[in-house]
Design a protein around this nucleic acid. Structure first.
Lengths: 352, 352
DNA sequence: ATCGTGAATTGGAACGATCCAGAGCCCGTG
DNA sequence: CACGGGCTCTGGATCGTTCCAATTCACGAT
């Protein structure tokens, strides 16, 4: 052991300092570099040396010191992600599922996920600091509801990042992205209702400046038109809130009498359920409703809410794949990946 | 500048390496150590020197390299937390809110949150690695639904950590913890119903081996007894699932005819709503229901579900406070902190 | 003018890993 | 037997910061 008498020892609650490469090297009777190779490039060692070193590593319970490794290799093996919680009073809880999948996928690639907060009014805050202090190797950018200033900003600084969400507003972007085909999801939902003989199917969507909202809406209108069904007077765009969905649905019911609703979110779909509730209409039997995102709300609401489900686990895997490519030497740029959603069918779209 | 000709320069997509202390020192005409002091102990510098150094820092856009700092100070300023997502089909989404609050509170204390996954069957997996590689300074332990083997394990290794949840099963534990008074929450809910003239109030709770479940249950029974109301035949304990809640509520309604339900979770409360739905009973008007955790489901379900709300933002703040104490030199142990929940009153407990 | 004192500043060493160039060894070949 | 070359292994330098001890500076007191 290279430990000398005045180094910290176990004393009361003060823990011993963990073993270092040098400790392992001494125990195994080899040089530091050989131990390093045993850990990082085991194929370089002779079989018996490797075994000897591995035993020493096991005996001492050695793990490489992250800070030292990070300093030398100029990499942190950390991926930063700005974490914004779901708004109160909405049903949007994608993040929970996505973050977990991301953590798992990252772990397999040898990365950990570092969360940070940022000033809600400044989409770029928080990134700069982590970038300059080389605290993270790359970012995962979510929250591309309205455009994506973060992506533009990060691209400008040549910071490695992968976006969950297409660069709608900046087609010249060249960064990797992963997204779910919202139009396909809405079409899936619409087709599902058409197959159940609905013909008057309304769309309750988001404000027009939301790219994602317009994308999803296009799936509905495309599905309607391809079956020769009219869409005029059957669409409305409102804020993403239960109350907005309720009012919109009420208006549509009074004016156009649709028998089905496809919504841009579960939040809006819950609003539609409210409206039905008020009119004594039963979801599924009288009027069909489909939401978007397969939130917990959709899963546990009495009767169940049919909803478009994003394959977030796959999104995370693709994000990490792109990340790994980005950080490889030389970098392998992965082009944009578009994944298909599925439909979780529940009571709100089935005559029981 | 200390940069020499063969150091990396901006070349195509290859970014310049960020400025270092030495760069700043040269520009400001001082030594490295003085720059370091300007950053960490500005009060040591003469005012004009400080200004000069700060200008240089700003000019170069300098931020200390995290890895180097971590190596030297033997601290990562990272807090690890094992992230487990909410189960599908339940309404439990505490983590989303808590994680965000934790991220924010940590940031104020100069810490970042690192998430990691672990083998679901092994409550201790994941911790060891991060601990030995000194990747994190401390842990935040959640998930203390059934006992808390992580806490015991971490205590054994003298690893700094704070638990969200009391050490129910190991009263000899001395680690800091923060928790929410579940009994008080259940009592709050029960009193709320009693004040609305309910007398037969049922409890739908968790299996008996859940400490948290029994704690919450005790709040219900205490509130009932203190008003002289009977509890026998009015309680049941089931798995935390919508279907279980539905069955339990059905049985209770048929056998004891309660007019109010207090539940250990929003998931169970949703089950109760199902049962009412099946019987044509209207929540609020015919039977009152109160859930626990104020999930998104409670917020958006038609009519709204009254629910006990945990002050997760405050929990996070207390957790970080305890963490900061733990990591201070010398450590200041903060004793356990118990916070009071509130009641979010909605339609399911009010006659409209 | 000299000294003493505390404030301000400095240079070298260290944290623990990896990079890099070179040294030792083994073995077949000319 | 010398030589070349591939496989192992080694030792010094280095990443960028902070710790530590020492040095210099400013300035009032002697």
């Amino acid at each position: 052991m290279s430990r000398t008498a005045d180094e910290p020892l176990s004393l009361g609650t003060i823990p011993v300092s963990p073993p270092t490469l040098a400790d392992v090297a001494e125990l195994a009777g080899v040089s530091r570099q050989t131990v390093s190779n045993a850990v990082n490039n085991p194929e370089l060692l002779r079989a018996d040396t490797l075994r000897r070193v591995q035993n020493a590593i096991a005996d001492l319970g050695y793990s490489p010191n992250r800070a030292a490794r990070n300093l030398r290799t100029r990499a942190s093996h950390l991926v930063g992600m700005r974490f914004t919680p779901a708004q109160e009073g909405t049903a949007n809880a994608l993040m929970d599922r996505f973050v977990h999948s991301l953590v798992e996928a990252s772990a397999e690639a040898g990365y950990h996920v570092l969360l940070f907060a940022g000033d809600p009014t400044d989409p770029v805050s928080g990134y700069d600091d982590l970038l300059r202090s080389t605290a993270v190797d790359a970012f995962v950018v979510t929250d591309t509801f309205l455009g994506n200033p973060q992506a533009t900003w990060l691209e400008l600084r040549r910071a490695p990042f992968v976006a969950f969400g297409r660069p709608w507003d900046t087609p010249e972007s060249t960064h990797p992205w992963v997204d779910v085909d919202g139009a396909a999801g809405a079409a899936l939902a619409t087709d599902h209702l058409i197959e159940a003989d609905h013909t008057k199917i309304a769309w309750v969507g988001w404000r027009k400046d939301s790219w994602i909202g317009e994308d999803r809406r296009s799936g509905w209108s495309r599905a309607m038109r391809s079956r020769g069904l009219v869409t005029s007077g059957l669409a409305c765009r409102v804020e993403d809130a239960v109350a907005s969905g309720r009012e919109a649905a009420g208006r549509l019911l009074d004016e156009s009498g649709p028998t089905g609703f496809v919504c841009a979110s579960d939040t809006l779909a819950m609003g539609v359920l409210h409206a039905l509730d008020e009119r004594g209409l039963q979801p599924g039997r009288d009027v069909a409703v489909v939401g978007f995102d397969d939130s917990q709300v959709a899963q546990v609401v009495p009767g169940g809410l049919t909803s478009v489900r994003q394959p977030l686990e796959d999104v995370a895997v693709e994000v990490v794949r792109a990340l790994a490519g980005l950080l490889a030497t030389p970098p392998k740029m992965v082009p944009g990946v578009l994944l298909e959603p599925t439909l979780a069918v529940r009571g709100s779209s089935q005559r029981r």
